[in-house]
């Protein structure tokens, strides 16, 4: 476990907790953006350059902005006087803790944990050119389907959010 991983992991975890607990929704969204940046850093550290940068482009540049706009459009930026957590909050935290306990137990006790670290990964084997080649050959069909999905999602989002015509 290197120092850079420790820093990135701390950044991700702290900002994720902040994103889930802060009262002000805009602060939550900004913390979420920090989480995304930290995750992108983790991806870069793992040698997935293209995906890491795509993560920043899509999540910080688009999804975070989208969330912020939604917060402003639904006027929930200013937290009300009421409770921020639902009635079953304790149960939810309990479930999450249980899930983490199970996952942690599984991870630490699995065969993967005992496997020695693989040899140093050669970054030149995962170039953008190779990645593009894979996308254009093996994964061409999923890519096209994805394009269709994105178009459909865009049209769907526009139609859902479209102001209903005032008929009367």
């Amino acid at each position: 476990m290197s120092a850079s991983f420790a820093i990135l992991a701390a950044l991700v975890v702290v900002s994720a907790i902040a994103a889930m607990t802060l009262r002000n929704l805009v602060h939550c969204a900004l913390c979420l953006a920090v989480t995304f940046i930290g995750l992108a850093g983790t991806y870069l550290q793992l040698g997935a350059q293209f995906v890491g940068l795509a993560q920043v482009l899509v999540y910080v540049g688009a999804v975070a902005i989208l969330i912020v706009f939604a917060i402003l459009l639904t006027r929930s930026g200013e937290p009300g006087p009421g409770r921020q957590f639902s009635a079953t909050a304790l149960m939810g935290v309990g479930i999450a803790l249980a899930v983490f306990a199970v996952l942690g137990k599984v991870i630490t006790s699995s065969a993967v944990a005992k496997r020695p670290a693989p040899p140093m990964f050669d970054g030149s084997k995962a170039t953008v050119a190779k990645f593009g080649e894979r996308l254009m050959t093996d994964y061409i069909l999923p890519l096209e389907v994805l394009a269709l999905l994105l178009t459909a999602a865009m049209i769907g989002a526009v139609i859902i959010a479209l102001r209903e015509k005032e008929t009367k």
Partner: peptide, 30 residues
Amino acid sequence: MNPLTSYLLLSALLFSIGLAGALTRRNAIL
């Protein structure tokens, strides 16, 4: 701890935080 395990644990922790938030917060955006 080998590197893979630490990444997996980070991922599990992140998942649990997200799950806890999704289950406990009242605002749909959160």
